[in-house]
Design a protein around this nucleic acid. Structure first.
Ligand SMILES: [Zn+2]
Ligand SMILES: [Zn+2]
Ligand SMILES: [Zn+2]
Ligand SMILES: [Zn+2]
Lengths: 131, 131
DNA sequence: CTCCTTGTTGCGAATGATTCTCATAAGCGC
DNA sequence: GCGCTTATGAGAATCATTCGCAACAAGGAG
């Protein structure tokens, strides 16, 4: 459920998320806040991120290690990501082709309520160069 | 590291995985084995699945809820999945469109060593009906 | 501005998946 | 069979995430 009151905690989390370079875990965001002198509780960070994600102000994905990572995105429209597995640099992608493919394949198999997970990982230009 | 000895436990896990309808979690596979009268330990199930995945005899992915799911696939060739988020029923998919899109978009952004995670989740025909 | 009503917070406990420890059991080459 | 290792199993340990609940504070009413 969406929050009904405004608190500095929730605002702090949003700001910290925007400032973060790429995708961050709740744990790391909490650490960053604490390091910055904030006293927001860990549970609150989780709750705030959940809210942001719910409204579409944040995107989330699962790291290969199983952690849930969040990111403040440019657009609230549905999109996907191309993430540098080295430095975290992220590009937002429109993937009409994939959306269509997903729906087509889904219904072809008689599945309903199709959802999809589509993420690209690679080395960004600078990290590629630094190889 | 790959195991150097053959044990009935590892074999039991492999068989149970093949018999499973679709993707299963280590926990559930262990439950199934126990229900079937096997005494394999949970830790062993995790180890066995890790080995199978390492050799490529099993595919793994993370459910939206963050659990790691395994499955014994028909082909060892690269492919994707359409999974029922209710019963685990799975269809293997060839996705040339996606492969091409991934590479195209990746290089357009100057990224190299592009890898991708593409999975579809939904409700299979029978689970849809049971709604 | 002050007082209430309630949504929120924060802490620690609870949960759940996965991993680790290590004593014991059991492959397998001889 | 014998012995050397490796694999197993039971439970402890680890980690991310969620809960429970008393104390707190945002915001509206007066
Ligand atoms: Zn990079
Ligand atoms: Zn999409
Ligand atoms: Zn189903
Ligand atoms: Zn692919």
């Amino acid at each position: 459920m969406q929050p009904k009151r405004n608190t500095w905690q929730r605002e702090a989390v949003r700001v910290e998320l925007v400032d973060a370079p790429g995708f961050v875990s709740a744990q790391e965001l909490h650490r960053r806040l604490k390091d910055g002198g904030s006293t927001v509780g860990l549970a609150t960070v989780y709750r705030a991120l959940a809210h942001l994600a719910e409204v579409g102000d944040a995107d989330s994905l699962q790291s290969p290690e199983g952690e849930t990572l969040f990111r403040s995105c440019e657009t609230t429209a549905h999109h996907h990501h191309l993430v540098c597995r080295k430095c975290g640099e992220t590009r937002e992608l429109a993937a009409t082709v994939v959306e269509e493919w997903a729906n087509r394949v889904g219904s072809k198999h008689g599945f309903t309520e199709i959802g999809h997970v589509v993420d690209l990982f690679g080395l960004c230009p600078s990290c590629s160069a630094a190889e």
